[in-house]
């Protein structure tokens, strides 16, 4: 109920504001003309990752130090992208708010060695505002990834896995959707668009569902459904700040884990 309320609230907020991608910090643009519906969909997708659950490992990944200014991206090669970001576009690799670090992938290690069923619902990867939303995401192996083009320009979706099968698909029209998946566990698969070289996303393919990605404030929540109480390892990953490890104790389905990255 709480989760549904959050989703509805996010949707309404996005509709009202119309500039939520920039507010989320997924990319910064002082004048974003990204379509409102696409923005709302992106916010819903993000909210589902961090919404608190009854039993969960929660916490915050903090950042010590000033977030460096991101160099501007030259997007002039596509007038449609340039039109969406009239005042220029930046693709910061380190972002966050209130001392929190966004886009950190967190996974529990040492969980029971079972066959985890992939969730039925697909993870949405949207190409919106000439950027990928979300920037970092995870799936359980064989879980579908619904890849959508919300831009009025063409994109190609081209992940470059080392273990899984590489593919490259053209998505020339707005609203086009395709569904893909990966069958083998693999970390940090780079998704890129060869048309717009600044576009990049990272995908983690997991054996189990005990993972999350920090939101814009560095907060995360990993559902502990079906996870026995006990002590588990925690591995965090950030695209430029690297990996860290720690431990968390889960008791009555709940645990807390905080960690700080330094610049």
């Amino acid at each position: 109920m709480l989760r549904n309320t959050t989703l509805v609230f996010s949707f309404v907020t996005a509709l009202a504001c119309g500039d939520s991608l920039a507010a989320e910090g997924l990319f910064s643009s002082s004048e974003s003309n990204v379509p409102v519906v696409a923005v709302a969909a992106a916010v819903v997708a993000n909210a589902s990752e961090t919404a608190p659950t009854a039993g969960a490992v929660t916490g915050e990944i903090k950042l010590k130090g000033e977030i460096p200014a991101a160099p501007p991206v030259d997007i002039s090669s596509d007038p449609i992208c340039a039109g969406l970001h009239a005042d220029g576009m930046e693709m910061p690799t380190v972002r966050g708010a209130d001392g929190g670090l966004a886009d950190v992938f967190i996974q529990l290690t040492g969980v029971p060695d079972e066959r985890y069923k992939a969730p039925d619902e697909a993870v949405v990867l949207d190409q919106v505002g000439c950027s990928y939303v979300p920037h970092v995401f995870g799936i359980v192996k064989k879980q579908d990834i619904l890849i959508r083009n919300s831009d009025d320009t063409l994109h190609n979706i081209h992940p470059t896995p080392k273990v899984n099968r590489e593919f490259n698909v053209g998505m020339p029209t707005k609203g086009m959707e395709i569904t893909k998946t990966f069958k083998k566990p693999e970390e940090a698969i780079v998704f890129k668009c060869d048309v717009h070289i600044w576009m990049k996303a990272f995908c983690f393919v997991m054996e189990h569902p005990y993972f999350a990605v920090t939101d814009g404030s560095g907060d995360f929540s990993i559902s502990t459904a079906d996870l026995p109480d006990g002590e588990y390892g925690v591995t965090t990953w950030h695209e430029t700040l690297g990996s860290k490890e720690g431990k968390v104790t889960v008791k009555d389905g709940k645990g807390t884990f905080d960690l700080t990255y330094e610049l």
């Binding site: 090669s77 596509d78 007038p79 449609i80 992208c81 320009t153 063409l154 190609n156 081209h158 490259n168 698909v169 053209g170 020339p172 668009c193 060869d194 048309v195 717009h196 070289i197």
Partner: peptide
């Protein structure tokens, strides 16, 4: 090289939008 993923057509067209690295 992979900015146009299909062949012999380009994005299923003879003349796609010439944007970005296309």
């Amino acid at each position: 090289g992979l900015s146009v993923p299909d062949w012999p057509l380009s994005y299923g067209q003879v003349w796609p939008k010439m944007v970005g690295d296309v």
